[in-house]
Computed example of a mutant assay.
Amino acid sequence: MFKNIGKLLLAVTLTIGTVVTIPTEQASAHTKTVQVGDKYGQVWNLQHRLQQLGFYEAKIDGVYGQQTKNAVVQFQRKHGLKVDGIAGHQTFSTIYNTTFSEEEIQMMAQMVHGEARGEPYKGKVAVASVILNRVDSSKFPNEVEDVLFESLAFTAVADGQYNMSPDKDAYRAVYHAIQGWDPSKGATFYFNPNTATSDWIWSRTQITQIGKHIFAK
């Protein structure tokens, strides 16, 4: 993972237009039960992950108040967990299985920005979805970092555009993809038909075209 991320503050724009600042939190998963009255530590992490899934839309402040409890309750109901508003081992385990770390969000946003800058917003979400579809596929690595930096996988790595600072839409696109919007319709590849030189990529089953990108399996 981003070895030099340090104390990076990640600004993310939510679908409702609220900008929040998320401090990097390196807490280990499932190590502590947190509930109303607790502060910081795992609470930052919990709020960030609930936000990814659309359950938490308040300011990420590291304070386990009523809004955080309500978000946990909604999450627990959706996943058939014990509904008590307390984030214990089972709740944290389920959240970790459906969300990503701040470093992973940052890396995906950089890739979306590098690969789909200038594309329609739907196309940005589709690129983010391809990344997630690869993580879920047995044909690709199962870690975000390994998917992004697999040899020759993404042009933005080769030409350095991955290193550009993502804009707000890149972060939003990643969040939308995590929440289940997949405009690529399950694609694990995409390419620009005007610049693609590989005969192999043309052999893939094409699904849809969004902007300049054709999405395929």
Rank of each mutant, 00 (worst) to 15 (best):
Y96G: 02
T197V: 10
A11W: 00
P23G: 00
F140C: 09
Y56L: 07
G37A: 09
D199K: 13
K7C: 00
I16D: 10
D146R: 13
I5R: 02
S198Y: 07
N192P: 12
G85L: 12
K32R: 13
K32T: 11
W44T: 05
V73F: 01
G80V: 06
H213S: 04
H30C: 10
I207W: 02
T94H: 04
L9I: 10
T208Q: 01
Y171S: 03
T155N: 11
E57D: 11
N163W: 03
H89S: 10
A196T: 07
T24W: 06
N192M: 12
N192Q: 10
Y121F: 15
F2K: 00
V19H: 02
H113P: 08
A58F: 06
H176E: 14
K139P: 05
A116N: 12
Y175G: 02
M1H: 01
K3M: 01
P183C: 03
D182W: 07
G114P: 12
I201M: 07
I105E: 13
W44S: 04
N4H: 04
A87M: 14
E119L: 05
K122Y: 05
L152S: 06
G65S: 08
T24M: 08
R117C: 04
L10D: 00
Q47E: 15
G123A: 14
I60L: 07
F215N: 03
D136W: 08
T68K: 05
W181E: 13
I105L: 15
G160Y: 03
I22R: 01
H30W: 01
N45H: 07
G88Y: 09
A177C: 08
F191E: 11
V144K: 04
M107L: 15
S138D: 15
I86F: 07
V127C: 11
A158V: 12
T195G: 01
Q74D: 13
H176S: 10
L148Q: 08
G211Q: 04
F140Y: 15
M111W: 01
W200T: 12
T205P: 09
R77L: 14
T13F: 00
I16F: 01
M164P: 00
V147A: 02
R204E: 14
R77T: 12
P193E: 13
A177Q: 03
T13D: 01
G41H: 09
R204W: 11
T188W: 06
R49M: 11
V174E: 03
V130D: 09
A177P: 05
Q67M: 09
I207P: 03
Q66M: 10
Q110D: 03
W202A: 06
D159F: 04
N194A: 11
F75M: 04
V157P: 00
P166V: 05
A126N: 07
Q51L: 14
N97G: 13
S151V: 06
I22A: 00
E145M: 11
V135M: 08
G37E: 06
M111G: 03
F92L: 14
F154C: 05
Y40V: 05
A126C: 12
Q67N: 12
D146Y: 05
N142R: 15
K185I: 12
Q209T: 14
K39T: 13
V157I: 15
N4I: 04
I178Q: 08
H79T: 02
A11R: 01
